[in-house]
Simulated scan of single mutants.
Amino acid sequence: MNRVGFIASSLLVVLALLSSMLFVVDQRQFGIVYALGQIKDVIVKPGLNFKLPPPFQNVSYLDKRLLTLDSTDTEPMLTAEKQRVVIDWYVRWRISEPSEYIRNVGLDENAGTLQLNRVVRNAFQEEINKRTVKELLSLKREPLMADVKREVLESVRGAKPWGIDVVDVRITRVDYVEAITESVYRRMEAERKRVANELRSTGAAEGEKIRADADRQREITVANAYRDAQKVKGEGDAEATRVYAEAFGKDPQFAQFYRSLEAYKASFSKKGDVMVLDPASSEFFKVFQGSVPISAVSRK
Rank of each mutant, 00 (worst) to 15 (best):
F6S: 06
I7W: 08
A8G: 10
S10E: 06
S10C: 11
L11A: 14
L11P: 10
L11R: 08
L11F: 15
L12E: 08
L12H: 01
L12F: 14
V14N: 11
V14M: 14
L15E: 04
L15Y: 15
L15C: 12
L15A: 11
L15T: 13
L17N: 03
L17W: 15
L17T: 10
S20Q: 13
M21F: 10
M21S: 14
M21E: 08
M21I: 04
M21C: 15
L22D: 01
L22N: 05
F23G: 04
F23S: 06
F23I: 06
V24K: 02
V24D: 07
V24P: 02
V25C: 06
Q27N: 13
R28Y: 13
Q29P: 10
F30T: 01
I32D: 04
V33G: 02
V33F: 12
Y34N: 10
A35S: 15
Q38Y: 14
Q38R: 15
I39P: 13
I39S: 05
I39A: 12
K40T: 02
D41K: 14
D41W: 03
D41A: 01
D41M: 00
V44C: 04
V44F: 14
K45P: 03
P46W: 03
L48N: 12
L48I: 09
N49H: 15
N49F: 15
F50M: 02
K51P: 12
P53L: 05
P55W: 03
F56H: 11
Q57T: 03
Q57W: 03
Q57N: 08
V59Q: 02
V59D: 06
V59F: 00
S60W: 03
L62D: 07
L62M: 00
L62Y: 07
D63A: 08
D63W: 09
D63E: 08
K64Q: 07
R65A: 06
L66P: 07
L67T: 02
L69G: 07
L69I: 13
S71C: 01
S71R: 10
T72W: 06
T74H: 13
T74S: 11
E75V: 07
E75H: 12
P76K: 06
P76W: 09
M77A: 04
M77H: 05
L78N: 12
L78D: 03
T79R: 07
A80T: 01
A80N: 11
E81V: 05
K82C: 10
Q83L: 04
R84P: 10
V85A: 04
V86E: 02
I87M: 13
I87Y: 08
